[in-house]
Design a binder for these strands. Sequence first.
DNA 1: AGGTTATGAATGAAAG
DNA 2: CTTTCATTCATAACCT
Lengths: 181, 181
Amino acid sequence: MDEGMSGFCIRAASVGGNSSSTGTKCGRWNPTAEQVKLLTDLFRSGLRTPSTDQIQKISTQLSFYGKIESKNVFYWFQNHKARERQKRRKVSFDEKDIMIRRDSAKISYTQNFAEVNHVSEPERVIETLQLFPLNSFGEAESEKQKLRVHANDQYRGNTMFSCTMGEQMEHPPLDLRLSFA
Amino acid sequence: MDEGMSGFCIRAASVGGNSSSTGTKCGRWNPTAEQVKLLTDLFRSGLRTPSTDQIQKISTQLSFYGKIESKNVFYWFQNHKARERQKRRKVSFDEKDIMIRRDSAKISYTQNFAEVNHVSEPERVIETLQLFPLNSFGEAESEKQKLRVHANDQYRGNTMFSCTMGEQMEHPPLDLRLSFA
DNA sequence: AGGTTATGAATGAAAG
DNA sequence: CTTTCATTCATAACCT
């Protein structure tokens, strides 16, 4: 019934007067060239997952160039690292694919040429890339129910949470009654 | 899934057919709006670490709205809890940053101010749980153990990253020295 | 303008 | 519990 909105955003308003660099419209962080350069340099220096303290310091420094929050720094590294990895993975995938097609008899998936990463960065962090197992495919049903949720139920009290969905009562209310000794 | 940081988005999911936006074939759980609402309500009510029994009940209830497994519920609470905390942490950092920024005219963020770490006590939200009939929330116990000081913030390593901007040196170089005991 | 790309943000899943 | 990884969503910036 309320399918109308596919995705809307609420912004923390009062962002007027931003103009960090080129008169951005607020909404989401848009790094300046200087900020990107600094972040990239740090990344190239080997920084991958800065600690909270480091994020804080970086954020503080970058705030000199424009509005920025520590979460932006956090996300930036997260994304940059992930995307580099992703890129590399794709490349190696292609190469392996080709190789497999080449000699489709021996199947020696050695990626001795793994350093063929022309990923626009002579970085120095070794990212071990994995070979994908070719034997376990139809595994969709197995449902590896590990669920180590019962890590610490000890005194798990007799709490009762209940919750209803308000308007649309198309189902019984959710009652979570726990039995107690 | 609300409380965006600077701008958050709410994605509406289909009530009847799930398959929100991109993929019905996705390998990972994609909660519907109703499922999220229920989970959020429970969270808001103070539920943090549901027991196995609770997880089971919640999962069963939520399955009314779409495919779901127990582990999804488990993970949801784990993630939601962790991220609320993480977010709070980052925000407080930013606020601190702003305060410092205001106070100092020239600002030379040496890593000294990192010691200003009595960031109040942002944790622990619920105290309104008491309006529930029973007071021995399994969670209340867990919360108590959280009173311990965040002693494990970052002992990641004593690496030192530094970076300068090259041409325009209008700011102190960025030195990220981690405090070593 | 409308499609495409780059990337900020979010989050499910899992590892540690 | 904390931290990291992967995948996806959303949108500013960029084409054509």
